[in-house]
Design a binder for these strands. Sequence first.
DNA 1: TCCCAGGCTTGGT
DNA 2: ACCAAGCATGGG
Length: 273
Amino acid sequence: MIKIQNPNFSIRQICDSGQCFRMTPLDKAHYRLIAGGRYVELIQEADGVMLLTDENEMDFWKYYFDLDTDYSWFAASIPETDIYLRKAADFGKGIRILRQDLWEMIITFILSQRNNIRRIRQCVESLCLVCGEKKQTAGKTYHAFPSARAILEAGEEGLAACRLGYRTKYILKTARMAEDGLVDLGAIKGMAYPKAKTELLKLCGVGEKVADCICLFGLHCMDAFPVDTHIRQVLDCHYPEGFPFSDYSGYGGIMQQYIFYYDLMKDKIDQEN
DNA sequence: TCCCAGGCTTGGT
DNA sequence: ACCAAGCATGGG
């Protein structure tokens, strides 16, 4: 059990931010997370987050949660004149850009296209259940995210149970390309954002938006700014003259997350009222 | 029954 | 280079 005290670290906000899909609430402030083949449980406390794991796993999770970065700085850099972004950044001040596994992000965000967040979670979980390696730690069993080979071995027949729809053939083609080395994931990890994105666009089912999500969440390219239907609407409404990307050079991605989360939560609150 | 969900591929100009 | 269809599935 290790406690992380940080005012810019909210498990609940990260869970709802739409960047990770295998973090799930077990109880009110108690979460489970499966990532990078590992399992951890987390408890949100008033002044930080408790990680239910032992010392030798901590380096991995500190890196995963990007805990060496000061996230208060990002919000502080927003000009006072931008009321909307100030508000969004304050509302989502516990969000961090996770350092997730590249392959996992590639498949996950291919599955995300024309899909809702609830069902994205279902698809990912189902995929892991069907062909992810079964593991266990401290009496908990879970399924890791499947490798390209495991996905190929499952094939169209095996994946049918996952109900991925037309996306099944996309992830099969992409897994084939990765397995055949037509795209070199190891090499992509060493590339700067524009080149990495160009490489990712070669994959089947990966377009502009999905490539940017993979860059931001799987490569930690903080300048990637995925534009989906929600972000498009917000930008058209609040930034008719265009979003000031140059004000946030090198870290536009976190601003995108603040906007996305703020917009998403507003919808949720509207539904409840 | 129709519409939408963190879009992309394909096949027409 | 640009533009529409078409795409599987589940939930409201």
